[in-house]
Structures are given as structure tokens and as C-alpha cells.
Design a protein around this nucleic acid. Structure first.
Length: 777
DNA sequence: GGGCGCAGCCTTTTT
DNA sequence: GGCTGCGCCC
């Protein structure tokens, strides 16, 4: 234990740490040691006799939570910190809801629907209502529902809210409220909560059950909220309820870094905090330890353009540092090349490692040109964001099995896997199931269990019965086996693992490896003791599932072991820092986004986003933009971002990266720059060690050999499906020769499993469609 | 069932 | 430009 953990703090930080009682607001400028203050404060609470079980600390990302817990542990030199309630709003509430969800009619193993699941439910409902999906786009409707929930507006309130109704009328979606209502009911029936429900239901739980509220008010004597500027009304109300008795609420944030209003965050929460409680102690952390004077100077100049901020003056003792490099290129590809070239050069000259670099963009779609140029330079990189591991199809499929085992009401999971792998329960059957389920108001699973009552017959009934028995056998296993053992059995019994193993295509191999990785992660989960004091011995499937749904790709950003250049959106970079930062795509329409320039509020949020981007850099900052780039498959001319004009010239070192030419003039309305160099687009014209310009096409995944052209035998004629039997050698027009190793399905709709040694292994063939010729019986 | 081609969407950002 | 979902074929 380090006794003098207070020594390393500056005066302000110290003040923030030792003020333990009552409401405290810490305004923490970028790079001002916020995490240090938060963690030290928690440690200090515990040193002063506060039980870890009584401290609740809410963060925005899992990564931030993990880091905090580790740092508290380090200060304390003990594992007491494991008893702290530190986590994201979503994960902590999911945990609390586990014990109390049954009070509201949900199973304690309720499923958490991610955005994909939720949109799928919305889509189903739109279809069921026979609404035209030109107007009722699932995506937009879902966003609308999400926004309502984040403002604690339920379906009833929604449908009588004048302004909401007006908006929906104007958008030609008058029935959005109706969809919302049905959506909520459907999720309930499915025993599922979406991300927003974790907040909304938590709120309803506290509001509706005074004993529960009292329990948690008593439990959480000290509450700390990180990134308070990004909280939404639901989070705000919950915090207010939980803290109402002790009022030991410490919020930390920076209004200048509020960038999540699109998700319902209200910057007002932080601006108004002083009015919410009596005697709020406000501490401002204004010394920046991260960046050079130049970088911070730019940041301050930019953010000064925003109105209505909490007054502060961010300063640093650090060196002046280099000017900010502002690089213009002709195209997005050249932008990528310029960045990759610069990275290569800095590595060579200044001995930077790959991990010292980060490329920050406004939208995920911008990553492509950088990926290509980095690959060409053989610079290892990793993209954060985008599809997380758990969103891959093969992983979602596998997890769907675990979900339906854990929660039989989970209709979305059931739909995913009822016919994967193929078992003869097709679209028609599923439609019948859906109709019966809606009609009788029972779950899909119940319909399947009682399939014979509902008139399913023959092969279909048999297939359903087998499926039901299989899932039930997994459930029985749960009593005596942990999540990993059940998962392994699922892989075996369903044949998924074998099927993926037999697929020898490149993609198939990757899928197989991913599933293996999933199994490993489940194993790891069952073998690691939970940090969660109350659930120490429970390593059940339900907990595992709830946990992984709340995991993001960005949570792995701190993987210090891998020496790679990082690519991510600015949003994902919040809270991180890098020696060298490239802030790319500074163009009108892109950054600020064309969708966010219609009001002062929107534009100010874009500017805060730019502020966040600038303040990620420690020693070197590059800002780049291109005259033209491909968007939507079309070449688009762009003007330089208005934010560039807000940077005083003295901070900038301008250059043009197309041919090493210098542009000396000020930015006299970028339009004139447009065509100057257009004609010299030849690949070799670019600066740098131009290789003999063989612009190698991007390495592509080789397309699957299953498409390999087998030339059918001259005498090929299809044989009658009814005559096929297991063990026969057959020929397929495309896949070549193979052996039937399985037969299933109704007599009039037989499905053969055939092993094709030369075409990727086992395939399921529907004999009614694909023709097979018997070669040898 | 699944492969293929086409249409339409997407591009704001995520727990 | 890339991805998804859909309808059509075998």
C-alpha cells in the first residue's frame, strides 16, 4: 500500500480527492488527470473507512471501469476493490435488474437485445401491421423508440404527446407510437430488454418499488459518475433517486467534451448540476498534463467559439512543441498515402513505435483508404469499432443457441437457429409458428413444444420434436454443468462445429476459428472468479450472456501488447491519448457532418468533437483533408472544414502532400485549390519513395473453392430423390462427386447431407431442387 | 436450402 | 463503394 497516495496530486486535484461528503462537481479539462483523481478519491474513501460495498461508480465504457478498478487496487495494494460497484450504467443496472426483474414480470435470466435484435423486432412488427416500409424504416423507427426511452417516455405517454405526434405526422410515420407500444409488449413477451430498457426499467423499478429504492439508497452511500456531460435524462433521474438520501454524489465531466447528444445526452445535466443540489462544491481541474502548448493552444482557440460553457482556462507547463501540420491532398487515397508515408518516416527518424500513432476520423467508412495505404507500407494496424467480435454472424448464431437455452421466451434467438444447421424447419413452418404464437398469445417455444396440438405433421413435426428435445437436453445439463460445458455440447450436438470445420474455404476457416475463440472465452469466463461480490459462485450461462452483450470492440483499445497503429472514430477515442494523432477528413459535409449543420446546437457539438480529437494528441498533431473523395460511390468535391478557419495561422504549418509542393497562401476559400493538380494524378507523381508504381490491387479474400467448376459428366441425369439412400456415391452438377452421409426431412421434401471432398466438405442438399445422380449404390 | 444478381440503402457518432 | 435483403432460380 502506498501511504502517500495524495502526494502526487496538484492542489486542485487534491481538493477534489479529499472532499468526500456532499455533492461535488469536478470539471476536468482534457488531460487534467481526471482518472487519477477519480481513482484516488475512491481509494481515499476506503482509507477513511467507507466500505467498498457502499461505493457505486458509474462510467461510460467497460474499459474505463476496468481501468479504474485496476488503479484503485494498485493504490490500495489489496483486492478490496473487487467489492466496489464499478461499471457502465448499462452493466451495473443489468446486474441489479437480475435480482429484481421478476418483480416486473421478466425472468431473472432476461435476454439483452442488442441494436440488431431490437431492429429485427421492430421490423417484424412493421411487417405484421402491414405498414409500408418505405416510410416505416425499422432503423428510423427504432431510433425514435430509443430516444423516447432515454427521455423516460413510455408508449402511453408517447402516443398522447402532442409534439411527438406532430413530428411523426410530418415524417409520414403516424403509427410510430403504435409500433412502440407493440415493440415494448413483444420484448416483454420475449423476456428481453434492449439497451435502453436497462435504464428505463431500472428507473421504473426504483420508482415503482419503494423498498427496492430504499435498499439501494442505503447501499450506495457514495456515488460517483464519470463523463457526466454525456448522461441522458434517464441516467440523470436514476442517479438523482439513488443519491437522494445521502447526497454524496460526485460527478466528473467536461462540458467541452459532450459529444453524445444524438444518443439522448443532455449537456444541461452538467450545466445545471449546481442548481440540483444545495452547497455543491465545484472543483476545476485546469492544468493539462498531456499535450504541448501548441496543441492545447489550438484546442482552446477552437472551443472558444462555442457559447454557453462552464468557464475555465486550460493551461499546461509542457513544452511549446511543433506546430500543427495541416496537410491538404487531392483525393482520399492520397490522404491515406500521405498519412502512411508520414508514419513510416516518423518511425524511421524519430523512433516512434506503431502504437504511438492513432488515426481519428469522423465516420467509420473513412477507414478504407488508410487501411490500404498502411497495408501497402506494411505497417500493422488495427481498427477499433465497426463490427465487434460478438456481432459476427457465426458468433451470433452460436450464441443464439445459448440464449434460447437460457431464456426460452427469446424469440429472436429462436428464429436465428431453428433451421441452422438445416433441419427441415423452413420458412413456411416458421410463419405458421408465428401466426399461432400471436394468435394464442404464447411464445414461439410453446408452439414448438405443443406442435402436435397445432396440426404440425409428418416430417415437419418430427423435425420440430427433435429440435425441442435437443434444446431441452441442453437445459437439463445446465443444472450440473457450467456455461462452457454446455457450450461445447451445443457445438457437438448441433453439428455446428463439425460443419464449420469441414468448410475448408478461407472464410470457413476464419469462422471455425472464431467459434473456437468464442468457446475459449466462455471457458475463461467460467474459470475466472467474478469481481462481483454478490454473485461470486454463480458462473451461469445467463450472466455470461448478459455480460457479452454489453461488450464493445472499443473495450479492447488498451491492448498494450500489440504494437499497432490504431484507427478509430473520434467518438471512440474519448478518454484516450496518443503521442501522434492524425485527425483526418477535415472537410465541409464530412466534419462537420452535413447532417449536423442546421442548428447552433448541432454545430457546437461537432466543434466539441473536433476539440476532443485535437486534445487526444500528446506531442504531434496532423490535420488532413482532401479536395475530393468518394462517398456513396461518387466522387465528391469538398471544401475545407470551417473548423480549420478557426485555427489561428500561427499554430499551423501547411503543406500539400500530392507532390511536395508548398501552399503558402492563406485559405482563400478552398475552391480555387480544386483543379490545380488534377492532371498529374499518375501514381508515380506522389512524393516519397515511389516504388515502380505497380499499384497492387488490394489483397482480397480468395473466393471460395466451393464455386470451383466441376464439369458434369456427359451422361449426367438426375435421379429420383425417393431412391436416394445413405452411403450412396452421387454426383452433383457443381460440387462434383460425393457420398450421402445423411438423409432427413419429409418424404416429399428430403434433405441429404452429402460429403463432397473436393468442394468444401459436407453440404446439405434439398433434393427437390438440386439434382443428384447416383453413381454407385 | 442456398447461390446469384439486383436494388436500395447507407454515412454521423454507441452502451 | 460496399453491404444487406430480397426474389429468383436450381
Amino acid at each position: 500500500m502506498s501511504a502517500n497516495y495524495l502526494d502526487g496530486l496538484n492542489e486542485r486535484q487534491r481538493e477534489a480527492v479529499i472532499t468526500l461528503q456532499g455533492p461535488v462537481m469536478i470539471i476536468a479539462g482534457a488531460g487534467s488527470g481526471k482518472t487519477k483523481v477519480l481513482t484516488t478519491r475512491i481509494a481515499h474513501l476506503m482509507r477513511n473507512g467507507v466500505d467498498a460495498f457502499n461505493i457505486l461508480s458509474l462510467t461510460f465504457t467497460n474499459k474505463a471501469a476496468k481501468e479504474m478498478k485496476e488503479r484503485v487496487e494498485k493504490i490500495l495494494g489489496s483486492n478490496e476493490a473487487r467489492n466496489l460497484y464499478i461499471g457502465t450504467f448499462h452493466s451495473v443496472f443489468a446486474r441489479l435488474l437480475r435480482s429484481d426483474a421478476p418483480k416486473m414480470g421478466y425472468p431473472s435470466d432476461f435476454t439483452i437485445y442488442d441494436a440488431d435484435d431490437a431492429k429485427s423486432v421492430v421490423k417484424t412488427i412493421i411487417n405484421e401491421l402491414n405498414l409500408d416500409d418505405k416510410h416505416y424504416k425499422p432503423n428510423l423507427v427504432y431510433n425514435r423508440i430509443s430516444a423516447a426511452k432515454n427521455s423516460l417516455i413510455g408508449p402511453e405517454a408517447y402516443q398522447v404527446d402532442y409534439y411527438l405526434q406532430q413530428e411523426d405526422q410530418r415524417a409520414s410515420r403516424p403509427l410510430t407510437g403504435k409500433i412502440y407500444d407493440l415493440y415494448v409488449k413483444r420484448c416483454y413477451k420475449n423476456g428481453a430488454m434492449d439497451f435502453d430498457d436497462l435504464l428505463f426499467k431500472m428507473y421504473q423499478l426504483l420508482k415503482g418499488f419503494p423498498d427496492v429504492l430504499a435498499k439501494y439508497q442505503h447501499k450506495f452511500k457514495y456515488i460517483m459518475i464519470d463523463e457526466y456531460q454525456d448522461t441522458n435524462p434517464a441516467q440523470y433521474e436514476i442517479v438523482k433517486l439513488l443519491g437522494a438520501v445521502h447526497e454524496n454524489i460526485c460527478v466528473v465531466g467536461d462540458d467541452a467534451q459532450s459529444i453524445y447528444s444524438f444518443r439522448g445526452a443532455t449537456i444541461q445535466n452538467i450545466l445545471q448540476f449546481e442548481k440540483d443540489y444545495d452547497d455543491v462544491k465545484v472543483v476545476k481541474l485546469e492544468q493539462n498534463y498531456r499535450s504541448t502548448k501548441s496543441i492545447l493552444g489550438v484546442a482552446n482557440e477552437v472551443i472558444a467559439k462555442n457559447k454557453g460553457q462552464i468557464e475555465k482556462n486550460l493551461w499546461t507547463d509542457n513544452v511549446e512543441g511543433d506546430k500543427i501540420k495541416l496537410v491538404r491532398t487531392n483525393t482520399d487515397n492520397e490522404e491515406g498515402k500521405s498519412v502512411a508515408d508520414t508514419i513510416a518516416e516518423l518511425k524511421l527518424r524519430n523512433h516512434f513505435a506503431n502504437r504511438d500513432f492513432c488515426i481519428l476520423y469522423r465516420t467509420n467508412a473513412q477507414s478504407r483508404s488508410f487501411e490500404e495505404s498502411l497495408r501497402r507500407q506494411a505497417i500493422p494496424y488495427r481498427i477499433f469499432g465497426g463490427l465487434s467480435f460478438y456481432q459476427r454472424k457465426e458468433i451470433k448464431d452460436f450464441i443464439a443457441y445459448l440464449r434460447i437455452i437460457s431464456n426460452s421466451r427469446d424469440e429472436e434467438a429462436l428464429k436465428r437457429i431453428i433451421n441452422y444447421p438445416v433441419r427441415g424447419i423452413g420458412k413456411t413452418t416458421l410463419e405458421k409458428v408465428a401466426i399461432i404464437a400471436n394468435d394464442q398469445n404464447i411464445t414461439f417455444w410453446e408452439v414448438l413444444e405443443r406442435a402436435s396440438e397445432f396440426g404440425f405433421k409428418g416430417g415437419t413435426l418430427e423435425a420440430i420434436a427433435n429440435f425441442v428435445i435437443m434444446i431441452q437436453s441442453f437445459r437439463v445439463m445446465l443444472d450440473k454443468h457450467n456455461a462452457y460445458e454446455v457450450a461445447v455440447q451445443v457445438g457437438k450436438s448441433t453439428g455446428i462445429v463439425k460443419e464449420l470445420f469441414n468448410d475448408k474455404t478461407t472464410e470457413g476457416l476464419a469462422r471455425y476459428e472464431n467459434v473456437q475463440e468464442l468457446l475459449n472465452s466462455i471457458k475463461e469466463f467460467t474459470e475466472t472468479p467474478t469481481e462481483d461480490g454478490e454473485l461470486l459462485d454463480d458462473k451461469s450461462l445467463g450472466i455470461y450472456l448478459q455480460q457479452i452483450t454489453l461488450l464493445t470492440d472499443a473495450d479492447n483499445t488498451n491492448d498494450e501488447n500489440s504494437d499497432v497503429v490504431k484507427l478509430m472514430t473520434i467518438h471512440a477515442s474519448k478518454g484516450l491519448e496518443f503521442p501522434v494523432v492524425f485527425n483526418v477528413g477535415l472537410e465541409e459535409g464530412l466534419f462537420p457532418s452535413g447532417l449536423s449543420i442546421n442548428s447552433r446546437e448541432e454545430l457546437e457539438e461537432e466543434r466539441r468533437l473536433f476539440y476532443v480529437a485535437v486534445t487526444r494528441a500528446k506531442s504531434r498533431l496532423f490535420i488532413t483533408y482532401a479536395n475530393s473523395r468518394y462517398r456513396f460511390g461518387q466522387l465528391q468535391q469538398n471544401e475545407p472544414s470551417r473548423f480549420l478557419e478557426e485555427i489561428p495561422e500561427k499554430y499551423l504549418d501547411r503543406s500539400y502532400a500530392g507532390g511536395g509542393l508548398r501552399n503558402s497562401g492563406a485559405m482563400g476559400g478552398g475552391a480555387s485549390w480544386g483543379n490545380m493538380f488534377d492532371k498529374r494524378k499518375a501514381p508515380g507523381a506522389a512524393a516519397g519513395p515511389s516504388r515502380p508504381a505497380q499499384q497492387e490491387p488490394r489483397p482480397r479474400v480468395i473466393s471460395s473453392p466451393t464455386a470451383a467448376n466441376h464439369t458434369p459428366s456427359a451422361n449426367f441425369t438426375a435421379d429420383d430423390p425417393a431412391t436416394m439412400e445413405v452411403g450412396m456415391d452421387v454426383e452433383h452438377q457443381k460440387f462434383g462427386f460425393g457420398k450421402i452421409i445423411g438423409l432427413e426431412g419429409a418424404p416429399n421434401n428430403r434433405i441429404a447431407t452429402v460429403m463432397f471432398p473436393k468442394a468444401g466438405g459436407e453440404k446439405k442438399i434439398m433434393l427437390n431442387y438440386a439434382k443428384l445422380m447416383i453413381v454407385r449404390q
